[in-house]
Simulated scan of single mutants.
Amino acid sequence: MSRPSAIALIVRSRKALLADADERPSDEAERLRAAADDLTRLMFDVRAGRVSAFELNEPTRMQVVVSAD
């Protein structure tokens, strides 16, 4: 997957987690917000080229390999 596509995927996943957190009890919402924070860090790492492969678990499990630019 291209770097811009990988970043877009992370952004969509993060938005979905945050939207889901708004509808959950506080303890589960806290877990979802923490996962969204992890995705934010991952997004910056992918953008900077520090990460070239990662796995997403939400909303579905997938492995992503970022292609060279």
Rank of each mutant, 00 (worst) to 15 (best):
S5V: 10
S5W: 06
S5N: 13
A6S: 02
A6Q: 01
I7N: 07
I7D: 05
A8K: 15
V11G: 12
V11I: 12
V11D: 09
R12W: 15
R12P: 12
R12Q: 09
R12V: 10
S13W: 15
S13N: 05
R14H: 09
K15I: 15
L17R: 03
L17K: 01
L18P: 04
L18E: 05
L18K: 03
A19F: 08
A19K: 04
D20H: 07
D20F: 03
A21V: 00
D22N: 05
E23V: 05
E23K: 08
R24I: 01
P25D: 00
S26V: 01
S26T: 01
D27N: 01
D27A: 01
D27W: 05
A29K: 06
A29E: 03
A29V: 03
R31A: 05
R31D: 09
L32F: 00
L32R: 03
L32H: 00
R33C: 01
R33M: 04
A35E: 07
A35Y: 03
A36L: 15
A36W: 11
A36R: 15
D37H: 14
D37I: 14
D37S: 12
D37A: 12
D38G: 09
T40G: 14
T40Y: 13
T40V: 07
R41D: 15
R41F: 13
F44P: 08
D45L: 12
D45T: 10
R47V: 13
G49C: 05
S52D: 14
A53K: 14
A53G: 11
A53S: 12
F54C: 04
E55I: 05
E55C: 08
L56N: 04
N57W: 11
N57A: 12
N57H: 14
E58S: 00
P59Q: 03
P59R: 02
P59C: 08
T60H: 04
R61E: 07
M62D: 07
M62S: 06
M62A: 05
Q63C: 13
Q63D: 08
Q63I: 08
